[in-house]
């Protein structure tokens, strides 16, 4: 074990303390693909909008799941799925896409990505993902937007469609797909709302959402509110209007919420509908349909283990040399850290 120097610890603590105390000052540094954005404007208490509990309406939520089922370094087998859950008068119906396996190597990465991208956007991608992991991540993101289209097709006018994550077209070249989804929602009179569990909005040194949550709590106590964030400078990628919202008076968390209201409806109206969906005691302050769909599409450890087993069995029956493949996939970390 390395020796821990107290001075090192104190220096780090000083840095963190100063950073956390920074006022909402502008600073630089953004990452377009991952949606890491600096919010430039100063925070003002006057901008908080109090939210009431709105009317419950039919809501659907879209989410995706992905995992690397087999990792041999130079090639991997990824797995993705996406799906949506529709909740109508307390009853939930899940529609989950069948699992898709993505075997891909460093060498054919661009081809594979090309194919997946074209399926969704009918055009060649402007770039290729850097790593195999990011390819799987992008494929999942595409699958989620495609499933959002399916969900919209099935929803009635006046419903709400929740997206897991922001309405941010981060992946290069994906904007037309997100626009297609947003347009379809508009045309059908469906409100689109993206709720981010992990916002990458920063204000200076600080993460914006918890900072606002703290401020909101200090100013308004136990209340529902929304705080509008101006992201107009990112209009080339950002859809709808962005808020940080506290959706249950007693919730510990606030979330970034991007809203494209249905024509003739307001963002506030949409946010208040979210309040009505965010009072499940298991997930207080988070819209229940998103929690539900997350559990539907998550590719958990057990499923992955099962997949790995079936994959290996199939490798044998397909004439593959399983012994070799297993050796390629061996990871000395597992020996070091146990679990291998």
């Amino acid at each position: 074990m390395p020796h821990v120097n107290d001075d090192e610890v104190r220096a780090a603590a000083r840095y963190v303390s100063t950073a956390a105390a920074q006022d909402f000052d502008a600073a630089g540094g953004i990452d377009h693909e991952r949606g890491v954005l600096q919010v430039r404007e100063r925070i003002s208490k006057g901008k908080f909008i109090p939210l009431q509990r709105g009317q419950a309406r039919t809501a659907a939520a879209v989410d995706g799941g992905s995992a690397i089922v087999m990792d041999c370094g130079s090639f991997v087998v990824g797995a993705i799925t996406a799906g949506h859950v529709t909740m109508e008068r307390g009853k939930a119906t899940a529609h989950v896409q069948p699992l898709r396996l993505l075997p891909v190597s460093q060498i054919d990465k661009p081809c594979v990505y090309d194919e997946i991208f074209k399926e969704a956007l009918y055009a060649a991608p402007p770039d290729a993902p850097e790593s195999l992991e990011s390819l799987v991540g992008r494929a999942r993101n595409l699958a989620e937007w495609l499933d959002a289209e399916r969900a919209i097709a099935a929803l009635d006018k006046g419903s709400l469609l929740l997206i897991d994550g922001s309405l941010w077209a981060g992946t290069p070249g994906i904007r037309p797909l997100v626009a297609r989804v947003a347009d379809a929602a508009q045309k059908k009179g469906i409100c689109l709302a993206g709720v981010s569990k992990q916002s990458k909005l920063y204000t200076g040194y600080r993460p914006l959402v918890p900072a606002l949550a703290r401020l909101g709590k200090r100013e308004f106590g136990e209340a529902c509110w929304a705080y509008p964030i101006d992201l107009t400078e990112y209009a080339d990628r950002q859809f709808g209007e962005t808020f940080v919202a506290h959706l249950h008076p007693m919730a510990d968390f606030a979330f970034r919420v991007d809203v494209c209201p249905a024509p003739g409806r307001s963002c506030q109206d949409a946010l208040e509908s979210l309040v009505a969906l965010s009072n499940d005691p298991g997930y207080l302050g988070y819209p229940y349909p998103l929690a539900r769909v997350h559990n539907e599409v998550a590719l958990g450890g057990e499923l992955c283990t099962e997949l790995e087993v079936s994959l290996k069995r199939a490798i044998s029956t397909e004439g593959g040399e399983l012994g070799a493949i297993e050796e390629y996939g061996r990871d000395f970390h597992k020996v070091l850290d146990g679990g291998g």
């Binding site: 909740m87 307390g90 249950h248 008076p249 007693m250 009072n279 499940d280 005691p281 207080l284």
Partner: peptide, 11 residues
């Protein structure tokens, strides 16, 4: 929630 805002156990 009993104190404020209420709650509704879904499903």
């Amino acid at each position: 929630g009993d104190g404020k805002g209420g709650f509704e156990m879904r499903e």
